[in-house]
C-alpha cells in the first residue's frame, strides 16, 4: 500500500511537471507573437516531445494502477483526474505549437495585426494555466469559479480582437490579419481546456461535478 501511495505521489508530480512544461510552451508562444525569434519557436516545437513523453508515461501508469491496485475514493479520483487532465494539457501543448507556427518569424511578414490584444489574451491564458496547476497541486476546488471568470474575460477579448480585425484598413496585409484571427482562436481554445481542467480538479476534490 505504501508503495502504491508513493506511486500516486509520483503520478501527481508528473502531471504537475507536464503542466509546467505546457505553461512554459504557451508562455513562449505568447512571446513569439511580439518578439519572434527562431530559437524560441524551435524550443516550443521540440519541447512538445517531452510533453508527449510524459503523457505516455502518465497514461501507462494510470492504467497499470487501475489494473493492479483497484484504487478507491481519493486515489481513484486522482487517477481518473490525471487521465483526463493530461489530454487537455497535451492539446494545449499542440495549440502552443500552432501559435508559434502562425507567428511572424514562421512567416514572411513583419508583425501581426492587433498583436496588443493577442498579447493581453496570451498573458491572461498563461495565468489561467498557472492558476489551474496551483489548484491541482493543492487540491483546491475553488479554482473552478475563478477560471470560469477568466474564461469570460478571454471570450470578451476574443470578440474585441475580431472587432479590430474587421475594422482593418484595406492596406493591411490580409494574411497577417488571418494569422491573428487564428492565434486568437488558438488562445481561446487553450482557455477552454483550462476550464475543463478546473472542472476536473473540482471533481478530484469534491467527488462530484
Amino acid at each position: 500500500m505504501r508503495r502504491f501511495h508513493e506511486e500516486l505521489n509520483c503520478l501527481h508530480q508528473s502531471v504537475i511537471k507536464m503542466g509546467c512544461l505546457v505553461e512554459e510552451a504557451v508562455r513562449n508562444a505568447v512571446i513569439s507573437i511580439s518578439d519572434p525569434s527562431p530559437e524560441l519557436i524551435e524550443k516550443v516545437i521540440l519541447g512538445d516531445d517531452q510533453i508527449d513523453h510524459i503523457f505516455d508515461q502518465v497514461e501507462t501508469s494510470c492504467f497499470m494502477m487501475l489494473a493492479m491496485q483497484q484504487p478507491v475514493a481519493r486515489d481513484l479520483r486522482l487517477i481518473a483526474c490525471c487521465i483526463r487532465i493530461i489530454s487537455d494539457l497535451e492539446r494545449m501543448g499542440d495549440l502552443a505549437i500552432n501559435i508559434v507556427k502562425s507567428s511572424p518569424a514562421s512567416n514572411d511578414y513583419q508583425s501581426l495585426v492587433a498583436s496588443d490584444i493577442l498579447i493581453r489574451m496570451g498573458n491572461a491564458v498563461t495565468e489561467m494555466i498557472a492558476e489551474s496547476l496551483q489548484a491541482f497541486t493543492k487540491w483546491d476546488a475553488s479554482i473552478a469559479e475563478t477560471i470560469e471568470e477568466h474564461d469570460e474575460r478571454i471570450d470578451r477579448m476574443y470578440e474585441e480582437l475580431f472587432e479590430q480585425l474587421f475594422r482593418c484598413e484595406s492596406g493591411h496585409d490580409l494574411r497577417s490579419a488571418i494569422k491573428s484571427a487564428f492565434i486568437g482562436r488558438f488562445l481561446e481554445r487553450i482557455a477552454d481546456h483550462c476550464v475543463t481542467v478546473a472542472e476536473r480538479i473540482n471533481f478530484l476534490v469534491k467527488g462530484s461535478v
Partner: peptide
C-alpha cells in the same frame, strides 16, 4: 456502496 468507494 458507490458513495463509500468513490467519495466517502
Amino acid at each position: 456502496t458507490p458513495t463509500i468507494f468513490t467519495r466517502p
